[in-house]
Nucleic acid binder design. Structure first.
Lengths: 106, 106
DNA sequence: CAGCATCCTTGGAGATACTG
DNA sequence: CAGTATCTCCAAGGATGCTG
């Protein structure tokens, strides 16, 4: 979903832009289910995502304040991802989507 | 958002697939606001969508049973689009997205 | 009016190899 | 382990002209 000018005012549209991307909702799903996840852990649970794409999505989500990234100064490196309060705010959206899906899709 | 195998079971994911596409949520927005809309009317209110794309989206939505298409045997032709009950079922999703947007975005 | 047929462009994502 | 750097590709959309 590419950006559309003139709609940056619509809260529904802005929320939709957050959820855009082939893997985004799956990342949220994992982060909602597990409080804290590491990079390769997330990568494995998503299945076939490339590291480039995962990094891109996570960086975007972090820049939007939806995901927090904690780096531990260890060897080997450890990085943990989790949802911020803002990110957790999306759970209501997911709930309503689940309800719709359960009722109308298959 | 391209399809991902193995997730056709997740109701959230399936709902997200419905909403995918650059113009889809905007089309729903118009159809939720106005009970009935004609092709060029929709086209104008969306702004810069190409007729090809609008036809594609509407056909998809019709195939999914979300939008109903009524053709009147008149000259010039008149075609009216509106939401089905299933389509209206998405309003709860839009509501929760609006709430999130209002609270967290801007 | 409501599309359809064509051609073209773009960027999101995949694959793979490499590094601090 | 957690990424970065490249290269490649395809499908979603855009632009435009035509038609029943």
């Amino acid at each position: 979903m590419a950006k559309s000018k003139s709609l940056e005012a619509c809260p529904v549209y802005k929320t939709a832009m957050i959820l855009d991307g082939k893997w985004t909702i799956l990342i949220f799903r994992d982060l909602l289910a597990n409080k804290v996840v590491r990079f390769n852990e997330l990568r494995r649970s998503l299945g076939s995502i490339s590291p480039k794409t995962l990094t891109e999505r996570l960086t975007e989500l972090e820049d939007q304040g939806l995901v927090s990234r904690k780096v531990y100064a260890e060897v080997p490196p450890r990085v943990e991802y989790s949802l911020t309060e803002k990110g957790k705010g999306l759970s209501a959206v997911f709930d309503s989507m689940a309800k719709f899906g359960d009722k109308w899709l298959r």
